[in-house]
Design a protein around this nucleic acid. Structure first.
Length: 172
DNA sequence: ATTTCTGGCCTGA
DNA sequence: TCAGGCCAGAAAT
């Protein structure tokens, strides 16, 4: 932990539930899937800057849940991760909607073809699911692999994006 | 085809 | 240092 930056949490209402976006002074730095507990917006007063970002996040998230490509994204603050993780996350952001890569391919793209498992770890540590498309990374052979936020989410997101080239490796 | 085990690499404790 | 993870590939069933 570095310093106690003024993190601001704001709710994002969607048809799929209430997400919680977290902002630092650099931009969006976290996003949580709906998990029942409706944590209300803390007392902190969001600056005009953050409100603007939140508007973009809200629009982008809703669009993503419908399988659309976001037009505008707020700046994303990935400074919380290690260099390795940041390089992985950067790579994830280059994957366009509806397309998928395998953990092995991501590993190769960042110059560490053997670090496939570490890539998995970085994906799991991704603070901003959906907008940083960790769900577009599949295991080899197009199997769906795992997902911290719940496999159902990963599957749903991929289906809505129209990514048909993956296997539900869970019985099918 | 599916299960098991081994290799390899990054984290957090 | 050590265990473990959203894996991959080979070997064994």
């Amino acid at each position: 932990m570095k310093k106690k930056n003024e993190m601001v949490e704001l709710a994002v209402e969607t048809k799929d539930g209430t997400f919680v976006a977290t902002y630092s002074e650099k931009g969006l730095c976290g996003l949580e899937f709906p998990n029942g507990r409706t944590r209300k917006g803390n007392g902190a007063m969001p600056s005009a800057q953050i409100k603007k970002w939140h508007g973009q996040t809200t629009q982008a998230l809703k669009g993503a849940l419908r399988g659309e490509v976001a037009r505008a994204l707020p700046p994303i603050d990935l400074s919380a991760g290690t260099e390795f993780q940041k390089s992985v996350w950067r790579t994830l952001r280059t994957i366009s909607a509806g397309r998928t890569l395998s953990y092995g391919e991501v590993a190769k793209k960042i110059g560490k073809p053997r670090a496939v498992r570490a890539v998995g770890g970085a994906c799991g540590a991704n603070p901003i699911p959906v907008l940083v498309p960790c769900h577009r990374v599949l295991a080899a052979n197009r199997r769906i692999g795992g997902f911290s936020g719940g496999l159902d989410w990963k599957r749903r997101l991929l289906e809505r994006e129209g990514a048909k080239d993956f296997t539900l490796a869970l019985g099918a």
